[in-house]
Design a protein around this nucleic acid. Structure first.
Lengths: 173, 173
DNA sequence: GTTAGTGCAAACCTTTTGCAGCTCT
DNA sequence: AGAGCTGCAAAAGGTTTGCACTAAC
């Protein structure tokens, strides 16, 4: 990684957009926007709150929820469920990237992104087929990544040999 | 619609599958299975509970949750979020149908289903691209149906004329 | 100076858990 | 008979709301 802030341009785009909607750029919101734009991960409200607290220990969890709600309603972030792999919380990502599907490994929790023409094609077909005006789209695919397929096979063998152990769901790597 | 029970065959399929997993077909589960297979809607736990109570007033909400969890883990039903259009609850449908996307109108809440080859194509591409073993897939598209696009335009005009009224989100039709 | 936004506490909604008693097979 | 399932009560997890105070414009 270079030392230059990689999100300088997108961040500005986001801030422009907010100003247009008459939204105040408070210190708290700047912190949260930075985190959402910069962290490569898919953050949930709690994780975002923990990260934000490092920069401003007085920042409240409620402010995180309110900011996320506002960003979602302004169309600046997308809300994901990631197949509820880690619970029922929601995850967030900027809408600056091209549309993509999320591929979630149900064993290790790893999330891959898939960009590909079927997504655009689906969009176009839905629009023309129903005369539908698409505002948001979300595709999530759950299953087992190449790595975990092998490990799962191994685990099944072990369970078969030791019937005393129930087939508990393993924690992420 | 004919007078014959339309789900006699699928219901048996489901029951077979459950027996294979060593699951008991209790009275409560039969009621819930019938409702899920037969009602054309996408039911959430609460609605399913209300409908089930009509057939057995003693049936408990917890049993609904436990049954849904079991059906989901057995791969017999799919869990949907429907873009959280109506709150954060989950919706359920049998897995007997072919894979399809759910198209949710953000104004009236109506849900359409879209079957089309982009979904299969996406599946195949993800499998081959990542060597991924897909267990479940979910595509949800939110926006405005043809009917509501016109109504929304009308609403926007009204709001522009009477700035006193805030642009509240309208209830479903 | 106004009005929007924040923090705090408390409520809320959906879902899960512990446990005693009941019921399918 | 006995494991599996149910009902009840209570808790948990995630998110929202009411209200007084604060800060951005």
């Amino acid at each position: 990684m270079s030392s230059a802030a990689p999100s300088a341009e997108p961040r500005n785009k986001t801030r422009e957009s907010l100003k247009h909607h008459g939204v105040r750029l408070t210190r708290q919101r700047q912190i949260l926007l930075d985190l959402i734009d910069n962290s490569g991960e898919h953050l949930d409200a709690e994780r975002l709150f923990q990260l934000a607290k490092l920069k401003d220990p007085k920042l409240n969890r409620v402010t995180v929820y309110r900011t996320l709600k506002m960003l979602k309603e302004s169309g600046l972030v997308d809300e994901l469920d990631l197949m509820h792999q880690a619970g029922d919380q929601h995850f967030y990502e900027t809408r600056l990237k091209q549309e993509h599907a999320h591929i979630i490994c149900l064993r290790c929790g790893r999330v891959e992104e898939f960009f590909g023409e079927p997504l655009q094609k689906l969009r176009r077909q839905v629009e023309s087929h129903f005369g539908f005006q698409i505002m948001l789209a979300r595709t999530e695919i759950g299953g087992y990544c190449a790595h975990c397929q092998a490990l799962r096979a191994q685990e099944m063998r072990e369970v078969a040999e030791q019937p005393a152990l129930p087939p508990v769901r393993r924690k992420p790597l």
